[in-house]
Design a protein around this nucleic acid. Structure first.
Length: 360
DNA sequence: CGGATTTGACCAGG
DNA sequence: CCTGGTCAAATCCG
């Protein structure tokens, strides 16, 4: 099946990316731990891929796996709970702008592991300010899903939205699905890449923390803070396929870093990811172009840590570079139009699946 | 008071 | 008709 194939590909791709990272990590600056961690990830990725092949064989005949099946398989393989399924939003058939827009927007999911107690969870606090506009109980899920949209939606026309849902099994994991990139100038990402913008502090958004519970029930917590413990995130991009409007869906080179081990070093990385994922990513879009992107990948958060993320980043040159280069033309209006197509960019890793597991 | 959250109603797609 | 997603009025919080 296609699904399996894709997943497999993505798994392998991920392994490749992780290996690259590892390669980059060979430099002195990186810690042993982070390297070990990468190794682990790589191994798990391959294992997963292999196990998938087995399944595939088994399941070959079945028509289409139902979601349930898929999930179960997944869980098997990954520890990850829910897999995202791709929904293909690819077509914009409708006329409704809204829906159309929505459909065309890029969507990607991150799985964030939170250390309880600590605040700062990447995505939860991704540097953007979000306003909750709804919450719903989702069918098979134990926890409700919270719907958030960019606070500046009206003021700046920023259409970015995200959905946050706590994982059923692992209460420390939140699945955050982002849609659309921020076109607002928010505090966060400032302009271009290298400039470290001062922007966000994590703390500021304390309120958003609630999300933590939000899943469940809210309790006002306001704790927060900085710990950087946040941990792992994974990103998955979805919908890529269909049209070009999408952005590059990128996935990160490393899709995940787990948390477990992250200690300092990794931590760095993870931070990066957060940035990426969290906020910036979406914005890569037009980095090259200059202006437009308000958000390019600036390492905002990172700064706070002061860590040079550059190193990290460099590694995957693929991604980065590609991303950057890609849309040159985009002068986009920051406002949203995501119709920019960036097909050129192909990231390997893009597939909608979950891969979750990485932590473990 | 202004802005965010809550929460049930509403709506569209499947 | 069921569901996921959004709206919007009521409510909360500072």
């Amino acid at each position: 099946m296609e699904w399996e194939q894709k997943t497999l590909i993505s798994e392998l791709t991920r392994g490749k990316e992780l290996a690259k990272q590892l390669r980059n990590q060979l430099n002195p600056s990186s810690s042993l731990e982070s390297r070990k961690f990468l190794v682990e990830k790589i191994l798990s990725s391959y294992e997963k891929a292999l196990s998938m092949l087995n399944w595939g064989a088994l399941a070959a005949d079945q028509p289409k796996p139902t979601m349930g099946m898929m999930e179960s398989l997944h869980s098997f393989a990954n520890s990850s709970p829910r897999s995202e399924v791709s929904d293909q939003d690819g077509k914009e058939e409708c006329d409704k702008n809204v829906s159309k827009k929505r459909k065309t927007q890029p969507r990607w999911t991150e799985q964030v592991k939170i250390r309880s107690g600590t605040g700062l969870e990447g995505p939860l606090d991704d540097g953007y300010s979000w306003r909750k506009y709804g919450q719903k109980d989702i069918l098979g899920a134990n926890f409700p899903r919270g719907y958030y949209r960019c606070t500046h939606r009206h003021s700046q026309g920023c259409l970015a939205t995200k959905q946050v849902q706590k994982s059923d099994e692992d209460h420390s994991v939140f699945e955050v699905t982002y849609r659309g990139r921020h076109t607002c100038n928010q505090a966060s990402p400032s302009s271009v890449v290298a400039s470290p913008s001062p922007k966000n502090n994590f703390s500021k958004q304390s309120r958003y923390h609630c999300q933590q519970q939000h899943e469940g029930k809210p309790k006002p917590s306001k704790e927060i803070v900085l710990n950087f413990g946040s941990d792992c995130l994974q990103v998955k991009t979805e919908d890529m396929g269909s049209k070009n409007d999408i952005f590059p869906s990128f996935s990160f080179p490393c899709t995940s870093f787990g948390n477990e081990n992250e200690e300092n070093n990794i931590f760095t990385e993870s931070m990066m990811e957060n940035n990426f994922l969290g906020s910036l990513s979406p914005t890569f879009i037009s980095p090259a172009t200059s202006e437009s992107n308000y958000f390019s990948m600036s390492p905002c958060h990172m700064n706070s840590f002061g860590i040079g993320y550059q190193n990290v980043q460099t590694p995957d040159s693929e991604l980065t570079t590609e991303i950057i280069s890609a849309p040159t033309s985009v002068t986009n209006s920051p406002i949203g139009d995501l119709d920019i197509s960036i097909d050129n960019v192909d990231f390997d890793t893009t597939f909608p699946f979950d891969d979750s597991e990485l932590f473990a």
